[in-house]
C-alpha cells in the first residue's frame, strides 16, 4: 500500500481516551472519500472507544476502496494494538 500524493493527513493526538472518540470520528468523517494517512506518532494512550473509531474507519475506507494508512505509530500505539489483539490494523501501518 503506497501513500498517494494527494492523501489527506490526520495527526492523532496524544491521548485517545473516551473524550477523544467523538472528535476523532468527526475528523475522520470529514476526510472520507479521500486517501488518508493517519499519523500515530504522538499517541501515548489508545482507549477502547478510539480503537473502535479507527477500526471502523479502516473498514469504511476499505469499503470505499480508498487507501487508508496509519503511519509512524508510536511504540505506545503499537503496544496498545497488540494488547487489544487488534494487530490487524498493523498491515495498514506504515513504519515512519
Amino acid at each position: 500500500m503506497t501513500e498517494s500524493a494527494s492523501a489527506s493527513r490526520l495527526q492523532l493526538i496524544e491521548n485517545l481516551d473516551l473524550k477523544a472518540a467523538a472528535p476523532l470520528r468527526s475528523e475522520l468523517l470529514s476526510l472520507r472519500h479521500t486517501p488518508l494517512d493517519v499519523d500515530a506518532s504522538n499517541v501515548q494512550r489508545l482507549g477502547g472507544l478510539c480503537l473502535q473509531v479507527l477500526m471502523s474507519a479502516q473498514a469504511t475506507w476499505a469499503a470505499d476502496a480508498m487507501p487508508f494508512a496509519i503511519s509512524s505509530p508510536s511504540s505506545a500505539f503499537q503496544e496498545a494494538l497488540s494488547l487489544f489483539g487488534a494487530e490487524d490494523l498493523q498491515p495498514f501501518v506504515q513504519q515512519g
Binding site: 473516551l18 477500526m55 473498514a59 487489544f84 489483539g85 487488534a86
Partner: peptide, 30 residues
C-alpha cells in the same frame, strides 16, 4: 496480562461503519 500469558482476539462483528458509529457506544468484544 500480569496474571500470565494472554492471547487476545477481538470481535468486531458488531462494529458499524464510521458513519453509523456512535463514538461512545461499545461495539467490540474480546
Amino acid at each position: 496480562k500480569r496474571l500470565g500469558d494472554i492471547q487476545v482476539s477481538i470481535d468486531r462483528s458488531e462494529l458499524p461503519g464510521l458513519a453509523d458509529l456512535e463514538p461512545e457506544q461499545a461495539y467490540l468484544a474480546w
